[in-house]
Write a protein that binds this DNA or RNA. Structure first.
Lengths: 355, 355
DNA sequence: TTGAAAGCGCTAACAC
DNA sequence: GTGTTAGCGCTTTCAA
């Protein structure tokens, strides 16, 4: 009754037999390697087509390549990473490499886990966003599998890096807020784990602190931390706003947090400026109009892919590229509402030395 | 001078040797299969730990399983799919299966390509969002690899489906707009390719047309098409608004399109209602407040994974689950501004038969 | 309970 | 230019 239960997938052997050639010949055609006559090539190609043959990647990976590039990302709900993915995907188009994405869960060891999952699958190259993975481990892994790390500011001899200049970006935001006349500027960032020195959020936090101190606003320093995502940023901001003396401006570590903060601010009815980081597509929406630091995610993702392709092609010395971010000022930041109160509460700061 | 150039990765052989057992024994421990004494198990486990051994997936896949579940998605910039991914990822946690995501490019054959890439990699199971792939091809693929299709309304004996009730959802939107008093309701949807009969967007379009006709508004039917993404929706809406008699309400095929439309509407200064579909997280943001049809993406993704796990565990009969969507009305939809003009321009419709 | 050995489907190195 | 063959690192019979 049953026709042919689970028709077996054609193998290279089947193709060779049907075409009357050797497996090696078929293999060469597949990789269009050197040493096949046009005639044989045509015959093999026709047979492949006819049998609907597709090589199993696992078998190829066991001896040769997997023609696969893996990218590990910590949070695909963050539209910045989505931009990066787009850029990477497009840059990989037509190269013969297939892209697979391994999502990492939250947590210090999760990036590590996802990376290992990719390596276990013998991807030919890896792009990863893993600020928390130890450098020595990465070095060792990168010796075997070409690797470019995203948003890392360390320098390795074995892997390339693509990062934004987080200090410059954060400086720009802070400068902008100061120029608008803000003093009680709060910083909304992620948990300690994610703000270790040298990480993007660590650098942004550092820049915030430095600018505040240098502006004589050390007493107004206020750092609020929250977990990942708009919802947690929303909740954290709510408590921030409930404090006796809420900030007049909030600098959020990235746009996702900024959007959550904005939600709380809007609902509170208070006139508080909010700035973010990354310039996700929505930041420019007229209904949102969020001041943000433009990190060209797509270009960065594409650059990472190109670096990886270079390594795949044989390059062995390490490249480190830094993208210069660009502040986009929008309506979410404006002069503080209660300007009059501005100077009133900065005790140990001489009222404008430079005037 | 060089220490050990590219230290070889430990193999099962290395572990067996170091532990003084056979490869088969190690293999059994790895899969904690039946027939290993606790003593040997402990010894092997210790050796694995010590050698930092991890099995290569390719080798396992050649004979056995890859412990990998693949999910194919057409557009990770659409936050709806991002919700689905989240749900799927969480549901897979702790099952021993690793999730890999294959992004599909736009185009009729691209979903197919991404799916094949996954099958070539011998994933143990597949979840796919491929409205455009032919059913017969899918059937054949599903005979060999467990598969659950997302957002498909066809019924197969070999694959499961998880979908939303698109007709009910679209009906709800239209009913809502009609109740508000709108007549010139336009539908913004994707290109013909994506609105084939039976596809989600095809069903939504069909429901739109049906409701319009039944409401006696056949003359006001207006369907605008655009490519994927906010930007293209924005441009399409701009031309729509430039027409002599623009609509008073726009029903967009999904929220991404709705956000683009909203951008154009806001910029135009016109008072036009906009409704979307999917209820992406941002729709509820107070600054956006987009009326939308809530499709529980995370729950749907989790359900798809559970179905797949059931198949992986042996189920062979097909399941088809439909999720009932729920309209969320928000500020982006309100009564038409120029109510007075409402009836003036509906020539061949008897003014309310049922009154 | 344990181990030996035969593959899985490819590629690569080498003969012819 | 073409074919032969030895692996790659696992799992899976099947004996012991």
């Amino acid at each position: 009754m049953a026709k042919e239960s689970k028709a077996r997938r054609a193998t290279i052997e089947d193709v060779a037999e049907a075409a009357g050639v050797s497996r090696a010949a078929v293999s060469k055609v597949l990789r269009n390697a050197y040493g096949v006559s046009p005639k044989m090539k045509a015959k093999v190609l026709a047979t492949i087509e006819q049998l609907d043959y597709r090589p199993l990647v696992a078998a190829r990976a066991m001896s040769g390549a997997s023609y696969t590039v893996g990218i590990e990302i910590p949070d695909f709900r963050n539209q910045f990473f989505t931009k990066v993915l787009s850029g990477a995907k497009d840059a990989l188009k037509g190269t013969g490499y297939q892209l697979i994405i391994a999502p990492a869960d939250e947590g210090p060891k999760e990036g590590h886990r996802a990376l290992e999952a990719l390596l276990d699958r013998q991807v030919d190259g890896v792009i990863a966003v893993s600020p928390l993975v130890g450098q020595s481990w990465l070095e060792r892994a990168a010796e075997r599998t070409p690797m470019v790390m995203f948003a890392r500011h360390d320098r390795s001899l074995h892997y390339d890096t693509v990062a934004g200049d987080d200090v410059a970006g954060a400086d720009a935001v802070m400068q902008h807020l100061l120029e608008l006349g803000h003093q009680r500027i709060a910083h909304l960032t992620r948990d300690e784990m994610v703000t270790e020195p040298g990480t993007p959020h660590g650098l942004r936090l550092g820049a915030y602190l430095k600018v505040m101190v240098e502006a004589g606003l050390a007493d107004s320093i206020s750092v609020t931390r929250c977990g990942e995502g708009q919802d947690l940023a929303y909740a954290a901001t709510q408590s921030m706003l409930a404090a006796p003396e809420p900030p007049t401006a909030i600098f959020a570590g990235h746009d996702e947090l900024a959007l959550g903060a904005l939600r709380a601010v809007v609902e509170s009815g208070l006139d508080i400026s909010v700035a973010g980081y990354d310039d996700v597509p929505l930041a420019s929406h007229p209904l949102i109009s969020l001041t943000s630091v433009d990190q060209p995610g797509a270009a960065m993702g594409a650059r990472a892919v190109r670096m990886l392709l270079e390594r795949l092609a044989g390059r062995t010395d390490a490249f480190h590229e830094t993208f210069v971010p660009m502040l986009r000022t929008r309506k979410s930041t404006r002069p503080p509402a209660n300007e009059a109160l501005g100077n009133e509460h900065s005790p140990d700061v001489a009222p404008s030395l430079a005037e």
